[in-house]
Design a protein around this nucleic acid. Structure first.
Length: 985
RNA sequence: GCCGGGUUGGCGGAACAGGCAGACGCGGCGCUCUCAAAAAGCGCUGCCCGCGAGGGCGUGUGGGUUCGAGUCCCACACCCGGCACCA
């Protein structure tokens, strides 16, 4: 039986009780008043955006931001607004403290789900997306968020797209000069060198001959080498240096979605994060961004920002910096009739160059180019176990490569640890020992990391050891702990120790520790020009194109030589064309050999154009890719400064004021948004990409700080229980009865409880609209904020919401008569106990709010409110501070009470109460007496009691005497006035 | 395996800097008001023993430091999240 006692106003309920109906009236009215008065308008230091009533900027700028929503068609559930309420509470608090608070909300509206939803409903994505934004705006407005409505926008707005494309072109028209001096803070081991510079400067330096021509030998003095190149050759050189570039390399192709994806959008088991389709590695010509040029700065500058350690470490891991050396091994032609002859050299990356003497074989990834040619016959000494049963290396390698490419990421992962591989027939020369070592190919070496080849040191690496064991390869231990390895030692030794067996005629590492040995061998390798110290990253360049309709078109056309040409700024934005069909061309998810087909290519008139880009009308082909939806979220914080600005993405003066380094007392040297709240799911996606773009913009002089987000806060998620019946079907959660002890039932039958997300299919969704209806927005806000600390995930429990409602009802009743609606407060002086309670609460609530702990702030407000409830009459001077302190959390009821208390101005800008110290001192405090650490007595004493008096009083306590039980006193610890601890003899 | 976070009543959670464990809320129990119920108000509510005064136990487990440990140190177990054959 559903038990749903609808809580509506019953006839005999007092007329002026704070009911859901009244709450709703109050809330809607104040929302209109705020909007009319522009209460939450933040004032820019200059220009058209001013504060409430046209006021100029005053107070410290404080920029607070949410990760903006993606307007899906599903609507909101009660979990979504959690972060928005939290930022609103903080913003309202800071505003009352006198800060100039910038808080607004835009919409992240391009992307796959919006497109899929549109395809499903058969409407244009713009239509459905705009409808979704409208719906979401309505639901959020009802929450009473104190946003500056003049500053909202969506990433699909043509003016916004224009600047997204402009930033793309800034990146396209830049290159990374690793030697250029860089302004701004120096972090990590960095030398403050390396920054993006305009391509025009590169071209000028190449022409002037002050810089060698990349990829072309010869002395470019006077620009001779450069001048000798043809114009197309020059353009190829330039295009190869751009921070946004097109190249053909292995990318993630997802036939099920019909698009390529960035590494960050592919899960560890090789599937698309969205849709969970298989992803295949394919060589395709695609746009990339040279994020790897920023790998060091992206790692090191994490020191400058106040972010959760978890997110910082996820970014560090993702970038995956490791230092070591590249070492080149000569590869020898071996068998007679080997067509390859001397096959040149094989370069490996190692973090342990000090173990070079222990390299007894080598391994290259199956995709490694060395395998394109292998010896025709097995060299002498080839063991049968190495050949995989094939007669020639050619067959063996071909078979292994086939096998490896057919393996999915899942299989590859499942096989991790189990070593497979095959001898390639190649032999290489260990440059320090002179030994010829066999070159294997095995899939435990990845082409995408380092050089795709390793020197295998089975004595020092577990994986190499496992391979050596499987293929019967020699093991040399070159590092031993002091005292040597035990007789029965088996497996690799990867621990600390000193080098042994590591000497030749020219160099000896023996006796050196790992660190010293590394330095020495690197110096030696460099002197012989067979290797050098280097740093490698797990991070790869960011794949930036998508074969989708619903995204920003690239502001680039291709000329008749098939080289990219930027669209001039004045011709931006490049709008999305009308196409007959905007659905992506998707394929059988398993069909790795399908080819991406961009929907923008379906409009010939749009694709093939004649444009005058400054050198007369010419024929061009437009780029038919679109940008990933991360593009819009990479810079939206800048647009809040003034979304209507037409001369720049963001005006420098505004950027400096709101985002620059030290723009307020708590802003750090990197500057950035003062508080950025959102879920942790974007740790290596949006948050990494946005930092990258920001650094490019910094290098090019468009922003003054090196980081976009000074402080990041990850809010927890609201979870919910879901229930399944005996067949495993979900049943409506709101109709389930019972509890943990008695068990849960639905319509009389026992059901199973699960804990997790809220979702339609789980039949446990609770919507904000239901909460507005049944309790009002203020109660909903109080409940969400009181559930626990903001960074913790916790279960939603609708029946507990009533506690928050009772609090507000009691607060209402402390000011207004439920019977008559008249004000009930008195102008009498509060008694001392009340004054103390008020000022204690003020002092505490300030601290809790400063530290973003609304849950404990609410607890203290409730305590004060309950104290006032117990009084025969509530003094105005006691309840007014309470109303003000409640305002950030429950703003509507607070405004209403404030206005009924006779104040004409909104309290949104009223000063937050300040505690008067004289009421914070108690005239008595409770002293606790412990005997051996256990509390045995307590009594009231004056706060300034002397240690001697306190000790004497404590020792005289009857219960203390009883527990001392005649034993003497060994020691007395006195912490006047609160504690005495007596240690018996 | 590595990295990050966590484990406190029936439930969500408090506890500043090592000093009264369990604030506040939900739920539960009792009382007041009421013809009755709801709402509201008041009181109690960690577990165990005891009529009571009171006592014993108690913050995942085991040890340690300390006059005193939820808090600090060591070891372990379990849970959540991330990464994972990254050379």
């Amino acid at each position: 039986m559903p038990d749903a006692p609808e809580r509506t106003t019953s006839p005999d309920e007092p007329r002026f009780r704070y009911t859901p109906t009244l709450a709703q009236q109050i809330e809607l009215r104040w929302q209109d008043i705020w909007e009319e008065r522009g209460t939450f308008h933040a004032a820019n230091p200059q220009g058209r955006l001013t504060g409430p009533g046209g006021s100029p900027a005053a107070g410290d700028p404080y920029f607070i931001m949410d990760m903006f929503p993606y307007p899906s068609g599903a609507g909101l559930h009660v979990g979504h607004p959690l972060g928005y309420i939290a930022t609103d509470v903080t913003g309202r608090f800071r505003r009352m403290r006198g800060d100039n608070v910038l808080h607004a909300l835009g919409y992240d509206a391009f992307g796959l789900p919006a497109e899929q939803y549109a395809v499903q409903t058969g409407q244009h994505p713009r239509t459905t997306t705009e409808a979704n934004i409208g719906n979401m705006r309505r639901q959020l407005r009802r929450l009473g968020l104190g946003h500056d409505s003049r500053r909202t926008f969506a990433t699909i707005d043509p003016e916004y797209v224009r600047w997204t494309q402009w930033i793309f072109l800034q990146i396209f028209e830049s290159w990374y000069d690793a030697d250029a001096e860089r302004p701004g803070p120096v972090t990590g081991a960095g030398d403050g060198r390396g920054r993006a510079r305009p391509i025009a400067e590169l071209r000028a330096e190449l022409a002037a001959g002050t810089r060698p021509v990349p990829g072309h030998d010869g002395d470019n003095a006077g620009g001779a080498v450069w001048a000798a190149l043809s114009e197309p050759e020059q353009r190829d050189v330039i295009d190869g240096q751009r921070l946004a570039y097109v190249d053909s390399s292995p990318v993630n192709w997802c036939p099920g979605l019909g698009t390529v994806l960035a590494n960050e959008e592919v899960t560890a088991d090789g599937r698309s994060e969205r849709g969970n389709f298989p992803v295949f590695q394919r060589n395709l010509r695609q746009w990339k961004m040279r994020i790897t040029a920023y790998a060091d700065r992206l790692t090191d500058d994490l020191e400058l920002i106040d972010w959760p350690e978890k997110v910082k470490s996820m970014q560090r891991n993702w970038i995956g910096r490791s230092t070591g050396a590249n070492v080149r091994f000569d590869v020898v032609g071996t068998a007679e009739g080997d067509p390859a002859g001397a096959a040149g050299s094989l370069e490996v990356f190692t973090t342990r160059p000090d173990t070079l003497f222990g390299a007894t074989f080598m391994v290259v990834a199956p995709e490694h180019p060395l395998l394109d040619e292998v010896p025709a016959a097995w060299p002498d000494g080839t063991r049968s176990a190495w050949t995989g049963g094939y007669d020639t290396p050619v067959e063996a390698v071909a078979a292994y490569r086939r096998e490896a490419s057919a393996k999915t990421a899942v299989e590859r992962q499942a096989d991790a640890g189990k070593k497979t591989g095959v001898f390639t027939g190649h032999l290489a020369v260990n440059p320090v020992s002179g030994l010829q070592v066999p070159v294997f190919t095995a899939d435990y070496v990845l082409m995408g990391y380092g050089t795709g080849a390793i020197m295998a040191v089975p004595g020092g690496d577990e994986r190499d050891f496992a391979f050596a064991e499987a293929y019967d390869l020699p093991v040399i231990y070159t590092v031993e702990p002091t005292g040597g390895l035990p007789e029965d030692h088996t497996g690799a030794y990867a621990g600390d120790g000193v080098a042994v067996r590591s000497a030749n005629d020219e160099i000896s590492l023996d006796g050196l520790g790992v660190v010293e040995a590394k330095a020495k061998i690197i110096a030696w390798l460099e002197s012989k020009n067979i290797g050098e110290g280097t740093t490698t990253y797990r991070l790869n360049d960011w794949l930036f194109s998508r074969q989708r309709y619903w995204g920003e078109p690239f502001p680039v056309v291709w000329d008749e030589d098939d080289r990219p040409v930027a669209i001039p700024d004045a011709m931006l934005p490049v709008d999305l064309p009308d196409v007959p069909d905007y659905a992506p061309r998707t394929f059988d998810p398993e069909d790795a050999n399908s080819e991406p087909e961009a929907p923008l290519g379906r409009n010939d008139d749009w694709v093939h154009v004649t444009l005058d880009l400054g050198d007369g009308p010419k024929k061009y082909r437009r780029d038919t890719n679109t940008m990933p939806n991360w593009a819009g979220s990479c810079w939206y914080y800048l647009r809040y400064l003034d979304p209507a600005e037409t001369s720049a993405a963001a005006l420098p003066e505004l950027e400096k004021y709101w985002l620059g380094p030290q723009h307020n007392p708590t802003s750090g040297p990197a500057g950035g948004v003062d508080l950025y709240v959102g879920g942790v799911e974007h740790a290596v996606l949006h948050l990494l990409y946005a930092r990258f773009w920001h650094k490019v913009l910094f290098d090019l002089g468009h922003v003054t700080g090196v980081e976009p987000f000074g402080k990041l806060f990850n809010q927890g998620y609201i979870q919910a229980y879901a229930y399944t019946d005996s067949r495993g079907q979900y049943v409506p959660a709101e109709e389930v009865e019972g509890d943990e002890q008695s068990g849960f039932t639905w319509q009389g039958q026992p059901v199973n409880r699960e804990y997790g997300k809220m979702g339609k299919s789980l039949k446990n969704v609770v919507t904000p609209d239901e909460m507005y209806e049944q309790y009002g927005a203020d109660t909903f806000r109080v409940y969400e904020m009181s559930m626990g600390p903001l960074d913790l995930s916790r279960p939603w429990e609708t029946r507990a919401v009533v506690g928050s409602q009772r609090f507000l009802q009691r607060l209402w009743r402390n000011v207004v008569s439920e019977e008559t609606g008249e004000l009930t407060v008195t102008d009498d002086e509060p008694d001392t106990a009340t004054l103390r309670a008020v000022h204690r609460t003020i002092a505490d609530v300030r601290v809790e709010m400063e530290n973003m702990r609304p849950n404990t702030a609410i607890a203290k407000l409730i305590t004060l409110n309950n104290h006032l409830t117990g009084l025969s009459a509530v003094p105005r001077t006691a309840v007014e501070p309470l109303v003000l302190m409640t305002a950030p959390i429950a703003p509507h009821i607070a405004e209403e009470l404030w206005s009924r208390l006779g104040h004409e101005e909104s309290l949104a800008h009223a000063p937050f109460p300040a505690a008067d110290d004289q009421y914070l001192v108690q005239d008595t405090v409770t002293c606790v007496v412990q005997v051996q650490g256990k509390v045995r007595a307590r009594f009231e004493v004056a706060p300034d009691i002397s240690a001697e008096d306190l000790e004497a009083t404590a020792l005289a306590e009857p219960n203390v005497v009883k527990f001392l039980d005649g034993r003497g006193v060994r020691k007395v610890i006195v912490r006047a006035p609160k504690l005495v601890n007596i240690v018996p003899a």
